[in-house]
Design a protein around this nucleic acid. Structure first.
Lengths: 210, 210
DNA sequence: GTCTATACCTTGATAGAC
DNA sequence: GTCTATCAAGGTATAGAC
């Protein structure tokens, strides 16, 4: 799937069959360090020295595992989108009716953007700083997330459970609502991530009811 | 109101009574140049050299009018938030009933985030890069926008036109929906800014109906 | 109020020993 | 696979002439 990955990072691709055996531990530590740094200061304001230090490596140590700072951002974005997609798919499978599916998906998606708001901010807002090739890959992941919601809305309309004049537009609006949580949420916000999720799930149901 | 403005930029404050007479033309040209540059590359990736060049000045010319690059970001953010607030207030005054007011506000706010998506992105997503003092000032402007929507929702509930279990939460969700337009919109998107506005206004009405 | 020139610093990334 | 040392480039901001 990630056939255009750089050599420097192809060792991360052990999700396929577990053939890779070369210590991916440092790689993940670097990704986590980058996530912290990018979340604190933004992609461009973060130095590779800072990332290396947070991971307990020398500045040069980064380049053994990643081709560039941008490559680090890509791996991080890719992991984040994968997590989000799996979350949304799991929510759909967990619920039976379109009504419950919409609530489950929106609830979990919003909650994820609150709980992981640091990662989510990078994933959503540093996207323009990816290279064109990496942007394309992430865009493909985003389309998959969008497709899940759109299909559920369409199913609900077909079943007569929903009244949605504009399915693609409403899909986008629902996802927007959740994604924007990452922008405004911070620890100590009035509501917990769980409460935000529940509230947004109910808002979604109100929006699509006939 | 902007009493804590830096000296370097206080000449911009001629909105009060028109007492300032010192060519604010170059100042605005610099702000516009910064807007273009920040939108293209982000705040931190933009160089002061680039801003100066776009405004037709030497690198040093910037510092006659602004104390720092961050100061430029603040002026730009402040102008953007002022425009957005005025837009929202105008929409409320234009409509009579809470139902029409919600539609007008959400429609215009969403449309603004599409039409001015370059400015809006800076305004919304470079916010963390403002200095603490400047962040406070912008936060105050945001609260004013939020208050307008919240009051309209509350009025609609009182009048029995709306059913909104959670007024502050729904206010936030409606604004979120609109703000996120700036993230995904780009010229050539399926729908025009006007169509997006209309669609979002209708979504808002669906969301709050009893 | 704008320029040229530049100080002074940090950046991303590489070379080569171990 | 990690280090120390370092490069070339480019960063913000200032000094001082005009």
């Amino acid at each position: 799937m990630l056939s255009t990955m750089t050599n420097a990072t192809s060792t991360t691709g052990d999700t396929a069959g577990g053939t890779a055996r070369r210590a991916p531990e440092t790689v993940q530590r670097l990704i986590d360090a980058a996530a912290d740094a990018f979340a604190d200061k933004g992609f461009h304001a973060t130095t590779t020295r800072d990332i290396a230090a947070r991971a307990g490596l020398s500045p040069a140590g980064v380049y053994v595992h990643f081709a560039s700072k941008e490559d680090l951002l890509f791996q991080l974005s890719h992991q984040g989108h994968t997590a989000a997609l799996e979350l949304v798919q799991a929510a759909r499978e967990r619920a039976a009716s379109p009504r419950d599916q919409v609530a489950a998906i929106v609830s979990d998606f919003a909650r994820w953007h609150a709980e992981h708001f640091r990662t989510a901010r990078i994933v959503q807002y540093e996207f323009p700083h990816l290279s064109p090739e990496h942007r394309d890959q992430v865009r493909a992941q985003r389309k998959q997330i969008d497709a899940v919601v759109r299909q559920v809305l369409a199913a609900g309309v077909r079943a007569g459970d929903f009244e949605v004049p504009d399915v693609p537009g409403t899909t986008l609006a629902l996802l927007s609502m959740c994604i924007d949580v990452a922008r405004w949420y911070e620890p100590g916000t009035r509501r917990t991530p769980e409460a935000i999720g529940t509230a947004y799930g109910e808002l979604a149901q109100r929006l699509v009811r006939p």
